[in-house]
Design a protein around this nucleic acid. Structure first.
Lengths: 350, 350
DNA sequence: GTGAAAGCGCTAACAT
DNA sequence: ATGTTAGCGCTTTCAC
């Protein structure tokens, strides 16, 4: 690396001490206007810019926010990260992204990230907190904000998954469906569990008996079972039943898409379907779903983190967004009620 | 931040000097096995882990790779970043992501990122290099790899956009279309320009006259014109013509999707259509397109960057991927030739 | 093989 | 308002 101007060069050239230069670059009020100007001019001429690493070391605080993201494959993370970034620009932090290919390596990453001096704070995404992780995080005393997952001991921004599951199921019921199946993700997935709870509540409330045969969990170990293939085979299982469900709630859009493919292949397009997430594709295929305010979640998460970095002892602050029901063709009124008004016939899947 | 063990604590506890501890953690061969073991044991007990910032400062090299991404909104970046991350794990670098909300702020970000000591290298995405940027990057002497854009003076991984445009157009011609329009992005967009070149070459080769009326540039300033709305209004323009084109090549899938919506609204589904990118949605709506090997591009980009960091003077190395034609229903043989075998009727757009 | 000591570039008391 | 100086936690000669 080429030799570049340091604070000493500036001090020399401007005829002041390094302390003064440092003060200028830290916006200290204890510098006269004329000195400040002189230093700035010289600095510009020499192309000086403070060395962030040296600064971090001397200040004993890092300038990095770490985002720890397991399996960063969905549009969800992109949107949330956009929100994070947009809140970040006004701060002097940089965003370092640690994504992992599988859930197994998340703990290594996490251990890495919470080392002293590595980051000012961490945004932990979609990772269920068991006792061990909780202990690790707490003992590190790192500012942490949970995103897309909930734990009472940490700041968090998430959505009300139970409510979402309830809304989805309730919507199907209102559309006239009665035999409503659910496609869940892995048994260990917290969002999936919550959404299923909502599903049960809606059924209960409507006086519809809960039927285990209408619950199909994804056994796909990838992505916690949030995959197209998982949705497809779950739906195939439903279609193989003597009396398939007349509607299905898939706990994610990506699974719903797989399910949709299975439906089309079997010509079972009259089955009502609703997903969860409102990924980009969903509007194109007319999939009803629950939308998460992803961008907003990112903004809020970062703000919470910044606030906690400033005041580590402040009380826990959590934000629970409500999902929004997005009604499209896939949950058109049940055949018994009314014909599908916007049948989903059109997926030209290749 | 809680007081944590430093190299001095370890040295004390192990009865050696800090130099020795440092050597242990830098895998220096000049330390006896027994000392090494002792240090390691003590370090583990005290939960010591080297301070990355201090290390960076002392070593005069940073541990951060910066990815500079203008308008990180598309799935493309997610996939590329996955490739980058997966190549990153074996190195001791971290990935810091600088994305910008608009193209205007990219230069600020860039200036920021190439400051001395900020990053070991930078991955610059999708940013056309004018003289000013080129000068800036070169004078910074930072290792840089360009992604999704080409410039002879830098390492780069990109795809052959001209070839892609050629392949797209040629495919439409082979399917029997003759009056082929093109929807481009902003005039300043390098990929768009290249793809249009390929379009012209294919026409020329087939003896089809180039017709200015069949070229519609996007005037949408957002995202360089790579937007759904831009595609939609361009297609509307085509449909308003006395003799609309019988097929259209949109230089991105996202524009093609907008175009598709316009076609459906006007009932003009017989028009052949092909996009570019193969975004996730495309397979669901049956959009023919050119696929970019995104994940692979990420891997290669990072490898190139790592290599250049090690050997700054090595010759420029560029990788030009070939796009792959993905044929779906939207480019079914022209009506004159054969009926659309897989008509795209199914977009239930809400 | 190991230690002493001089940095890396900056910040932050403490002086003046 | 400005300068002096002692760190921040580590690496790296240079001795021994």
């Amino acid at each position: 690396m080429r030799k570049e101007a340091t604070i000493y060069d500036i001090a020399n050239a401007a005829g002041v001490s390094i302390a003064t230069v440092s003060r200028v670059f830290n916006n200290s009020p204890r510098v006269s206007a004329s000195t400040r100007d002189r230093v700035c001019v010289v600095a510009r001429e020499l192309g000086y810019v403070p060395h962030p690493t040296a600064r971090s070391l001397a200040k004993r605080r890092s300038h990095w926010i770490s985002a720890v993201i397991p399996m960063m494959t969905s549009y969800f993370y992109l949107e949330v990260l956009r929100g994070v970034q947009d809140s970040l620009v006004c701060s002097d932090y940089d965003l370092v992204v640690h994504s992992t290919a599988s859930m197994e390596t998340i703990d290594d990453q996490l251990a890495n990230v919470i080392q002293r001096g590595r980051s000012a704070g961490v945004l932990l995404f979609s990772t269920p907190l068991d006792a061990e992780r909780t202990r690790l995080l707490q003992s590190s005393r790192q500012p942490v904000v949970l995103v897309d997952v909930y734990h009472s001991d940490f700041d968090a921004v998430s959505i009300d998954n139970e409510l979402g599951g309830y809304m989805a199921t309730r919507h199907l019921i209102e559309q006239g469906y009665r035999r409503i199946g659910i496609i869940t993700a892995n048994a260990a997935s917290a969002p999936s569990i919550e959404r299923e709870k909502g599903y049960r509540r809606a059924l209960r409330e409507a006086g519809i008996a809960y039927d285990e045969a209408l619950v199909r969990a994804s056994d796909d170990p990838d992505y916690h079972g949030f995959t197209e293939d998982a949705g497809r085979s779950a739906m195939e299982g439903f279609l193989d039943m003597d009396t398939p469900p007349d509607a299905v709630f898939a706990v994610s859009d990506i699974q719903a898409l797989g399910a949709l493919q299975a439906m089309q292949e079997r010509g079972a397009t009259a089955i009502g379907l609703i997903g969860f997430d409102d990924i980009m594709i969903s509007k194109y295929v007319g999939l009803s779903t629950l939308r998460q305010p992803m961008y907003e979640m990112g903004r809020v998460a970062l703000e919470k983190l910044l606030r906690r970095i400033e005041a580590p002892e402040r009380p826990i602050s959590q934000m629970h967004f409500n999902p929004r029901l997005v009604v499209r063709g896939s949950s058109a009124p049940a055949a018994g009620e009314l014909a599908h008004s916007t049948p989903i016939t059109g997926i030209a899947y290749v």
